[in-house]
Design a protein around this nucleic acid. Structure first.
Lengths: 249, 249
DNA sequence: CAGTGGTCTAGACCACTTG
DNA sequence: AAGTGGTCTAGACCACTGC
């Protein structure tokens, strides 16, 4: 049969955990016991256990054994792209303003810069099918040799704008998400006449040295922004390619 | 030196990727080449590469090689607990109503049940320091032997309420997050007198067979709900325990 | 002390891609 | 045919926990 042993081991144990036969805190059979049970070498058994550990199912205590992990049910995978969310896609942007400013107190704090540091501020409107759907402000501390091209200003997402020099891998990001009523200026830009709230997404970018390299605040018309998240582990179970054979058994 | 070889291999390659020396699409040295370079066996080299693959840095094509992955900069890790968010913690709940209802159209659709299926509906208020901060509704299809105890109704989070029978592992969850104005009933319950929006979080739970087993909708007063998310890979870099030694080099 | 997990080796065979 | 990654073995030594 084509299913690798380590996958079978992982799936079997996973099944025991999902079905409740093994509960958080319970010990797994020892690696040597699993070797005998599956007639496999220890490296193969350990590979199976490594899979489970990566997916958050088990943890190990050296000298004691492998144990079922308490699942973290507060952690989700969130998909967020300022230009493309669950219900709408930005197809046009309008540049309202590009400016060099000095930081106010909040910016100094957020970007960890001194009061004399020049900050590039970019204000944009996002459109979906002719309708203004979001008002967007980006602040980036100005560093030498920072090439901001017109095309980027219009269509690049924030990480793409900032990551010209370093690799996108190196960038750490934080989001803070909340609801808010629009002020008069935003109401004007987004054509809001009734009482309608905003979804606000603050995006903060850090470089490899944990230094802030950008702050973006996007104000979405509530109607045009739903965010979507799902359980952290969407079961990377028996790597798809074995799914069919799996069902036959 | 105490740092395992496979960690060193992974860190070295990670460094090349983070610094931009290796770009997405580039090929890594072959496994055999890395064996020679680090004077290590192939299993050890492969273990290092497995680390990188797990963290999304590289992927492999059998027969060809290992390649640097295009980073997914739209994926975040979101922390969400209905009882405890970024800025406030629920310290009291008030049960407004527990009811057995028949599903309306939206519920039938959401929970994939027929019109005669009995649904348990639970309406609660969440308080923080005496202040009502959220209005919460849960719908769970009623199944035999479903023990809902008073204590759970007050203080359990949704996954905990539902997961009495199966393991929490088996539960898949989806969140949809949006902003909305409160209707009159919610305004009343949450003591909202001015124009203040709500953060709404819909939480849908599925069992192992992908069948919906619960729908929860939580309406937070905007002031009391900020959600927080960060880059998917918070650098599980050189496993903490090696951090110090790492810096010495 | 025996048993556990953590690291590592030096081979093997396979399926695949490339020239 | 040579090189690549994918799976697997049968050992080894270590540090650790428990009795």
């Amino acid at each position: 049969m084509g299913i690798p042993i380590y996958i079978r081991i992982a799936d079997d144990i996973k099944e025991k955990i999902n079905s409740g036969e093994l509960k958080p805190g319970d010990a797994i059979y020892s690696e040597n016991a699993l070797c005998r049970a599956y007639n496999a070498s220890r490296m193969t058994v350990r590979r199976g256990l490594a899979l489970l550990a990566n997916e958050g199912y088990i943890y190990s205590i050296p000298g004691k054994g492998n144990f079922v992990q308490e699942p973290d049910h507060n952690t989700y995978t969130l998909y967020y792209n300022e230009m493309k969310n669950f219900i709408s896609s930005v197809d046009k942007t309008k540049l309202l303003e590009v400016n060099i400013v000095l930081p106010n107190y909040k910016l100094m704090n957020s970007l960890q810069v001194n009061p004399n540091k020049k900050i590039i501020s970019i204000r944009r409107l996002f459109f979906t099918e002719g309708e203004p759907v979001a008002y967007d402000v980006k602040y980036l501390p100005y560093y030498k040799g920072m090439p901001i091209v017109e095309k980027e200003i219009h269509y690049a997402t924030f990480p793409e704008m900032v990551a010209k020099s370093t690799s996108l891998f190196a960038i750490k990001k934080q989001l803070v998400i909340y609801a808010q009523m629009p002020d008069e200026e935003i109401k004007k830009h987004l054509n809001i006449y009734n009482e309608q709230p905003l979804m606000v997404v603050e995006q903060k970018l850090y470089n490899r040295e944990d230094k802030p390299i950008g702050l973006g605040i996007t104000y979405f018309k509530a109607d045009y922004c739903k965010l979507y998240a799902e359980s952290y582990f969407s079961d990377i179970n028996s790597n798809e390619k074995y799914k069919d054979e799996d069902e036959k058994n």
